[in-house]
């Protein structure tokens, strides 16, 4: 059974703006799911509805089988949320604010658990510091600690690495991996597509309030990934020989490189024919390498393609 089942979820704000249009989505237990989409696509609205902050206009959401409206307590107990904005109580101490969060979720105080979280996030030394004295990165850690204080089974990270330094970003991804090992389901939105590429098991792309794609990351890369073969020529050439025109080659590097784009899914990639043709034309090369499209290329391609259709 999916840990989160979203069915025909729509949201139109009182301003008339429709943020979500009939979303259907199932998140499996224990997976890391990355939700990608341009600004204003509806990522935060979707997360905020699941977490109870925004009221949906229609549709249903089940969290671990519990309806977020009818059985909101059980649904919300399952979830930890790290919001996008750095919203903290300036005058509170780190320890107090994290303990407060645990209490809100109906759990008895557990100083041992809170200490483990604060140590894992390098916050233990700052436990008695007031939040207003912390840097932005430290505040982000506090928000994560708060979200983990009640031992959630699902963790939402809404743009968690926006504006944080490299060290913290790496710490955060280490933590996400550790959480996954403990069986926690992680749903994240990010602008750093390489992180989704590195971390996620599955990727969903949302655009204008609609999910336009949900795919296993590896399958997505395979399915949509194009490869490029670059040949480094011994002698520069000024034009692609006419007999090789069918391959759609591109000249690069001042005529010292030939770039061939091919589809890894095609029955015949054309590489053998191309190499034979090059030999026949007397073009020699001294090196070659291949490149696969990044997730970012795929994402940009998808959003553009969809935009062109819209």
């Amino acid at each position: 059974m999916p840990i989160i089942s979203i069915s025909q979820l729509s949201k139109t704000y009182t301003s008339g703006f429709t943020a979500l249009r009939g979303i259907d989505l199932a998140i499996e237990p224990g997976e890391i799911f990355a939700l990608l989409g341009p600004n204003g696509a509806g990522k935060s609205t979707l997360i905020n509805i699941v977490c109870g902050i925004v009221t949906p206009s229609s549709g249903t959401v089940l969290v671990d089988g519990h309806d977020i409206a009818r059985d909101y307590r059980a649904a919300r107990r399952t979830i930890g949320l790290v919001p996008q904005e750095l919203t903290t109580d300036a005058f509170e101490t780190v320890l107090n604010t994290v303990s407060f969060s645990r209490g809100l979720f109906g759990l008895r105080p557990d100083p041992g658990h809170i200490e483990r979280i604060l140590r894992a996030l390098s916050l233990w030394d700052k436990r008695d510091s007031r939040l207003m004295t912390l840097s932005g990165g430290m505040k982000r850690r506090v928000l994560i600690a708060k979200a983990l204080s009640h031992e959630p089974r699902v963790l939402f990270l809404d743009e968690p690495t926006a504006g944080v330094d490299v060290e913290l970003r790496q710490d955060m991804w280490r933590l996400v991996r550790a959480l996954r090992q403990q069986g926690v389901t992680v749903i994240l939105t990010t602008h750093y597509i390489e992180e989704a590429e590195e971390m996620a098991d599955r990727i969903g792309v949302i655009r204008r309030g609609e999910i336009i794609l949900v795919e296993e990351k590896a399958a997505l890369m395979r399915k949509l990934g194009r490869k490029q073969l670059t040949l480094h020529l011994q002698q520069p050439i000024t034009a692609v020989p006419p007999e090789l025109e069918d391959y759609g080659l591109a000249l690069a590097g001042d005529g010292r490189e030939l770039v061939y784009t091919y589809d890894t899914r095609a029955e015949r990639t054309g590489i053998t024919g191309l190499l034979t043709g090059l030999a026949a034309s007397g073009i020699r090369f001294n090196d070659l390498h291949t490149e696969q499209s990044s997730l970012e290329d795929i994402f940009v391609g998808l959003v553009r393609e969809d935009g062109a259709r819209a």
């Binding site: 919300r76 949320l81 919001p83």
Partner: peptide
């Protein structure tokens, strides 16, 4: 301050 998100997303009536 925006910290109301925590109250709204907690299992509280």
């Amino acid at each position: 301050a925006g910290t109301i998100y925590e109250i709204l997303s907690a299992p509280i009536s």
